[in-house]
Design a protein around this nucleic acid. Structure first.
Lengths: 139, 139
DNA sequence: ATGCTTGCAAACGGTTTGCACGTGT
DNA sequence: ACACGTGCAAACCGTTTGCAAGCAT
């Protein structure tokens, strides 16, 4: 419930309500530690901490946050979306097929090559989704 | 209902039934023309051609084809999967956000860079999903 | 003949929505 | 005060599944 959180919400044109504040806090709590949440994850976290927020509200808030550019929605797995705070520095993800662990990475060479390929086909690159499915190398 | 179609099914350990044969034919009909189908697309196509196949069967058959490596399933849009014949030469896709048009491409430089990045994190690259969201460049 | 296949309808699971009540500004 | 926000339950929609009947081999 710090000032920064409230300010973020105000800037997005969203009233600083308890569900929004708490959801934002949960997202921020793990910022930087490569954590990605489903709506359900956040919902459960709220319930555990005794905030009776409806699952529908979590979805609504996350959608609002997404529109406001506060969070980014990913779909690593079919029929399950995950959200993370919007990192101003865009990055991609690799998902371990064994553990589900998510690692973020960023590579300019790939980005540039993508723009190049799009241009070759007469297109402008607006957005992109890259997910690597990997497994740990055994020693 | 040609021999090749029947052979493909047999090899996959699937009986050559009418739904399977017709679905495979629909998929092959547009092979090479960058066409990607939803289960619904195929279902409608069957109905139009007077084959009373259930939507559930289309899903079952597509899943069997996927397991058999005959088709590949993609998810360009959240909550809608598309299928295409499995191109032995793996390729990626760019989707025009305006028209929905899908263009296939293939780039070894990107593939190699991906393997490299995975390795840097102690991972082996098993699979990958790359989709470019693009729009036509105006003249 | 027998076991794989199918159509139908009902179930599923994540997500969205209508509505009446509640709350921030 | 008043518009915006919320909880609840029902609706949604693509996909899956149980079951009894139907085919390929």
């Amino acid at each position: 419930m710090n000032d920064k959180t409230n300010k973020n919400l105000k800037e997005a044109g969203l009233k600083a309500t308890l569900p929004r504040i708490k959801i934002l806090e949960i997202l921020q709590r793990t910022s930087g530690t490569d954590d990605h949440f489903t709506a359900e994850d956040i919902y459960k976290e709220l319930i555990i901490n005794n905030y009776d927020v409806g699952l529908a509200t979590v979805y609504r808030v996350l959608t609002q946050f997404e529109n406001a550019g506060i969070v980014v929605k990913h779909q690593f797995d079919v029929n399950k979306s995950v959200y993370e705070l919007n990192d101003p520095q865009h990055h991609d993800h690799m998902v371990c097929v064994d553990t589900g662990e998510i690692t973020e990475f960023n590579d300019d060479a790939i980005k540039n090559k993508q723009r190049e390929i799009a241009a070759e086909h007469g297109y402008e690159l607006l957005d992109q989704s890259l997910v690597l499915y990997v497994k740990k190398i055994k020693k």
